[in-house]
Design a protein around this nucleic acid. Structure first.
Length: 106
DNA sequence: ATTTTGACCATGG
DNA sequence: TCCATGGCCAAAA
């Protein structure tokens, strides 16, 4: 059996990770980003209560395969896209659909 | 227990 | 604008 909790899956991929409160907080924050809005990794860290853990936020989202968590709405604080599981092009397209882009910028 | 890694950030040249 | 540097934290190795 699985030792660890399942975070979610995507096309058969499954991420098993040790549970942690920080991970749960990050998940909650990202889940609450409404369509057409974005947050930076840093602001997610702030809202999650650990203002300096912005880098860890990226680590967590990189392991997210749960479609309920719109990790594409999290971008870098300088306005550039940041990474995405299925390629940055896809991330950009999704954000375009959600009209998070104004005049070619976020 | 210690070291390395990473979807980052701010600053400075 | 682009690149290098030092810093930051949690998770994985």
């Amino acid at each position: 059996m699985k030792k660890y909790s399942m975070l979610g899956n995507h096309k058969g991929k499954v991420a098993y990770r040790t549970p942690s409160v920080f991970r749960q907080k990050v998940s909650r924050v990202v889940r609450n980003i409404s369509p057409g809005r974005t947050l930076s990794y840093k602001s997610v860290a702030e809202k999650a209560g650990s203002p300096r853990a912005y880098r860890a936020v990226g680590n967590i989202l990189s392991q997210n395969y749960d479609p309920k968590i719109p990790c594409h709405r999290v971008i870098r604080s300088n306005g550039s896209l940041g990474g995405y599981n299925r390629g940055n092009r896809n991330k950009k397209n999704i954000l375009k659909k959600e009209k998070a882009f104004r005049d070619g910028k976020i």
